[in-house]
Design a protein around this nucleic acid. Structure first.
Lengths: 336, 336
DNA sequence: CTGAAAGCGCTAACAA
DNA sequence: TTGTTAGCGCTTTCAG
């Protein structure tokens, strides 16, 4: 009976234990595991056999400490309950697995302080890189100083590698679609300071129309939970007896979705009375058949990860890489 | 001089650096950080100041190695694209953050091998514990041998701490609800081997009725993606000219949801022609107003995490803790 | 109160 | 082809 199985409670094996069992030095075990060719075939075979038998796995923590590489990536998103970011996470879990990486996921909840906490935690955990959906630009300069490989996702930010869809183009598609459907009075659901609002106004203006302030259903920019979005829309509806627009654009699917549900509840017909278009093309727009701007999430995350990898390996020059993909508009029942 | 400092990249600070700057030994820095009271107030203040100034964070990897505690938890779920598991992940991210833990999330994709990979990876990463939504019971005995603190979630498994909702009770609520609505011919959407099917049959039988085999829309048990579920349902619909049931129970929301959408597409009225009930009460059932069995996810994950913590600290006896919560049925338009 | 030193599990010179 | 050894950054005796 081997000494390792003598105890009822088997201790966690280390290379030292394997070495003893295989009658080699611990360094040789390390060599075998790391595929170093300068090892006697017989010895290697012995080592492999033992490893197999006892199910040994090298301690990644020790490797991280020694190699200064953790194969960990930190991911911070602004709202984990939004299906869009869930899709992002799904894609990232897949993508990182393909490359032997693991991810640590954090929700910043639209909170700048929490986001900074997240970043600090990533650093303490020795992540090799960070993928960030930033709350605002608030933490970016401090993050830059940390000099940790970082790719900003879903937004394009100065001085950072960034992968995103062109919001401007996506919003333009929405505006032109609605206008081409004969809508002249448009509305918007979303935060005031969002670039999608600016682009929407711009696109409308370029078509000889304009977006009236009264037709903006403002959402609080910090608390974008489904519940608070619903409340914000209700507040608007309660203070506006009659809606002065025939088509509305939700800056994201959650906004469009909640609006859609409220319309249903109030017996207002979509698209007959009001057309609705969302953004992100999540399960929300798919389920209620809401037109929405589609983002190629898989591609985006694949690119983001690939850039991050290159950055980690130092394979690319310092100038930030900006990738802006073209979105497409998926037209569904809510706007035709 | 290595390539990093040549490139002007500031090296990562260590306790040694802080010690030098504060004119104390590295051990003292460690004491200060860990709140050891036996440190000169002045010295401590100096150390704190430096730490603050340079933004030092102790290396968690080194701590893990030394302390044999990582404050990492491994989470493996069977289908990350299912909103139900996304809700689970959201709750776990929140819960673990509250306790200073981080989670590593893996998708096993209903694949036993992938699940075992995930577990191996968790071990290599030195997680303090594992939260597992098991694919099958296949890996459980091997997992047991690893002697790592583990809590099984969403299912109750022998020999393991488990936290779940009573599937039996949930399914019973569904059956009784449908029957009380006057439905005598019932259908089921889901895998053949799932316990929910057994419980459904049982509950129906206890009400003097039975579930006919022809009314089972079988879903492949290994590939539960939204797409394949849809395909399975389509296959059934294509081979059954007329549906011989007036109410159907989807073993999860994805099944109910896809069925619902197909009914809409084929102009079959819900609930007039067919009533639909799902399971999990996810955003899917909420969006299409499908009745569904609600699971108290936040509570479940809170309990699961709490048990895991106690297990990690060795605060509880060896006999597994089983927690089975009562589900509730949320009745919506799809069945009334 | 404080510093020196051992060691967590691993990798990578360096010798042999 | 091997073993010995020196750390990676940290915590914790053990002396002083």
């Amino acid at each position: 009976m081997n000494s390792y199985s003598e105890m009822g409670e088997e201790m966690k094996m280390t290379m030292k234990d394997i070495a003893k069992l295989a009658n080699v030095s611990q360094a040789t075990v390390s060599r075998v595991i790391n595929g170093n060719p300068n090892v006697n075939k017989e010895a290697a075979k012995r080592v492999f056999k033992i490893i197999e038998e006892v199910g040994f796995k090298p301690n990644r923590t020790a490797q991280t400490l020694k190699n200064n590489a953790s194969f960990l990536t930190g991911v911070s998103v602004i709202d984990i309950s939004n299906p869009y970011f869930m899709d992002l996470i799904e894609a990232l879990e897949y993508e990182s697995r393909q490359h032997g990486y693991n991810i640590i996921i954090h929700n910043s909840n639209h909170n700048v302080l929490t986001e900074w906490d997240n970043i600090q935690n990533f650093m303490a955990r020795q992540v090799d890189g960070i993928l960030l959906v930033p709350t605002t630009s608030h933490n970016l300069s401090a993050l830059k100083k940390l000099e940790v490989p970082t790719v900003i996702i879903t937004q394009i930010k100065d001085e950072f590698d960034s992968v995103a869809v062109s919001h401007k183009q996506g919003v333009k598609l929405v505006a032109e679609h609605l206008i081409s459907q004969g809508h002249h009075k448009l509305g918007y659901i979303g935060p005031m300071h969002d670039e999608r609002l600016l682009f929407f106004k711009e696109a409308i203006f370029n078509n000889g129309l304009c977006l009236r302030d009264e037709n903006i259903i403002e959402l609080g920019s910090d608390s974008n939970s489904q519940y608070s979005i619903r409340q914000d829309i209700i507040k608007y509806l309660d203070t506006h007896e009659k809606l002065d627009f025939t088509a509305v654009f939700g800056f994201n699917d959650v906004g469009a979705f909640e609006f859609m549900k409220l319309m249903n509840e109030r017996q207002i017909k979509v698209p007959e009375d009001i057309a609705v278009v969302g953004f992100d093309d999540t399960i929300l727009s798919k389920s209620l058949s809401i037109s929405s701007v589609h983002q190629p999430i898989r591609d985006m995350m694949q690119m983001a990860f690939s850039i991050l990898q290159k950055r980690i390996k130092g394979e690319i020059e310092e100038t930030p890489i900006k990738i802006e993909l073209e979105p497409s508009l998926i037209i569904r029942n809510s706007s035709k």
